[in-house]
């Protein structure tokens, strides 16, 4: 299985972009927003990722799934530019605006932080802009509340709101639904879908759930140190047996990613089988 062979053809060197586009969204629809080419990442002498060829295009929804410790977050941080790859290269479209939703955000209780102030970091936003974005993500009226008083679901939506404030071309979410229950996951995925439809931004989300993914995903990429396989998810919308499994309340936001690996990992295969789906 060679899941990545088709990707090289879509890549264009970033250097060809003209200078006047620096502060605008990349306009060429064929242009990859972010592309990784033969990327390896090493940390503390341990090779976490290798031979990663990956790209995401404008408006695409891509989900990265993989067991714990498979390097999902590392890949996201490398694509974000936080980690420098030890091999290969990562190219970002010039002027790319990224909205990032971290997996966790620990707030020191010593720091008073109203929601509106958080959304204005690092750049000042207008009150109407803040109110509109909060309404868009389904938490209107929390602008004056302190971040510490929000519930888990509200907090997640406020993080998403902040990521949306800069009108991003690409939304990157690291395990955005960790800690949410099944209906919570479904409604969060529905919200992402809706945001994508309204703003047209590409979405790159990471999940440790190997089998249940966003049904709107254009592609699902399964990684475990390297890219194991990728493909389209199978929508559960119309399959009654899966609707029974996930409940009717999910509104078709969840899909199954059915995949089989044709190779073994020393230790990781066990994690695959243990993973409840």
């Amino acid at each position: 299985m060679n899941p990545v062979a088709h990707e090289g053809a879509q890549m264009k060197p970033v250097a060809q972009k003209s200078a006047q586009m620096r502060h605008h969204a990349p306009q060429d629809a064929q242009m990859s927003l972010v592309a990784a080419h033969g990327v390896a990442v090493t940390a503390g002498g341990r090779r976490i990722l290798h031979d990663i060829d990956f790209n995401i295009d404008r408006g695409e929804i891509v989900m990265i799934v993989g067991p714990n410790g498979s390097g999902k977050t590392t890949l996201l941080r490398a694509l974000l530019g936080v980690l420098r790859p030890s091999h290969g290269q990562i190219t970002r479209a010039r002027g790319l605006q990224v909205g990032y939703v971290p997996q966790r955000l620990h707030l020191d209780p010593g720091l008073p932080l109203p929601v509106a102030r958080f959304l204005s970091l690092p750049r000042r936003r207008t009150r109407t802009d803040i109110a509109e974005t909060l309404a868009r993500v389904g938490v209107p009226g929390v602008a004056g509340q302190d971040m510490g008083t929000l519930s888990g679901g509200q907090f997640q939506r406020v993080l998403l709101a902040r990521a949306l404030m800069g009108r991003p071309d690409l939304l990157m979410l690291d395990e955005p639904t960790a800690g949410l229950d099944q209906p919570g996951v479904a409604s969060f995925y529905r919200l992402i879908e809706q945001v994508r439809a309204e703003l047209g931004c590409a979405v790159l989300a990471v999940s440790h759930d190997l089998h249940v993914v966003m049904s709107a995903s254009d592609r699902v990429v399964c990684i475990n140190g390297h890219i194991c396989c990728e493909g389209a998810p199978h929508a559960v919308r119309n399959a009654p047996e899966y609707r029974a499994l996930f409940g009717l309340g999910t509104g078709g936001a969840l899909a199954l990613f059915q995949h089989q690996h044709d190779h073994d990992h020393d230790h990781a295969e066990k994690t695959h089988q243990d993973d409840p789906a």
Binding site: R77, L80, G81, V82, V98, G99, Y100, P102, L105, H106, L107, L111, L113, F118, L121, P122, R123, G166, M172
Partner: peptide
Amino acid sequence: WSALLTATLNEDLAHASGI
């Protein structure tokens, strides 16, 4: 101020904002 505050909240978040 703003950059310091953003970096204090979360370093990856700061990075994504170009800080």
